[in-house]
């Protein structure tokens, strides 16, 4: 039971309190780059969610049962990025075979996920902090849900911003960053939950 509570807490804190984009600054590039329409943002978020969880599930055992016993823990970053790159390829092939419609919506975003810092950041953070397997799974689920939530919310706001009258110098990315600042302020209010 205690384990389960810890697991839930890891999810909540990863998604809301220590939000991956707004307070840990992972994946800002994709956040600013794709966040203009809700639907693609949602697809991108889903794809990233899937890869983050999968990458954490694969990277943790590799680190604990292969790299550490072999005394090669310093190779972690290289191994993780290779695992992530091949996972993204595999997921792409799998989705292409099983669901062509899903592949069409996710397709163009899949190669971008390899270079999304959220994926490597979570895998690296899990082992850097020495979390056990269940906590790292909770961290991965929470982080990716937080990413999905923020990227969809942000796309919704930016859709409205497109049609509103912003000062000329602020058009595009600057106003997006100011919006992100206000969202970060709002998410700071959630710090009292746990």
């Amino acid at each position: 039971m205690d384990l389960f509570v810890a697991f839930l807490l890891a999810i909540v804190s990863g998604a809301l309190i220590d939000n991956v984009v707004l307070s840990r600054f992972y994946g800002i590039c994709s956040f600013v780059g794709t966040g203009n329409k809700v639907k693609p943002a949602f697809s991108m978020g889903l794809a990233v969610t899937f890869v983050i969880i999968l990458a954490s599930v694969v990277c943790w055992p590799i680190y604990t049962y292969i790299l550490v016993p072999a005394n090669m823990a310093f190779l972690d970053t290289i191994v993780y990025i290779l695992v992530i790159a091949s996972l993204v390829q595999l997921v792409g092939i799998f989705i292409k075979k099983t669901s062509p419609t899903l592949y069409k919506t996710l397709g163009i975003y899949l190669p971008l996920i390899t270079t999304n810092c959220a994926v490597l950041g979570v895998a690296q953070g899990n082992t850097d902090q020495g979390l056990d397997f269940l906590s790292s799974l909770g961290n991965a689920i929470g982080t990716s849900l937080g990413y999905l939530l923020v990227i969809v919310l942000f796309a919704t706001i930016r859709e409205r911003l497109e049609s509103s009258d912003t000062p000329r110098a602020f058009k595009g990315v600057p106003v997006a960053l100011v919006t992100a600042a206000l969202m970060a302020l709002a998410f700071m209010g959630l710090q009292g939950i746990v």
Binding site: R24, P167, A169, F170, L177, A184
Partner: peptide, 14 residues
């Protein structure tokens, strides 16, 4: 805090 980072970069870009 994190929001200061977003704000400063946004204003610099503007």
């Amino acid at each position: 805090r994190s929001l200061g980072g977003f704000l400063v970069l946004g204003i610099a870009l503007a």
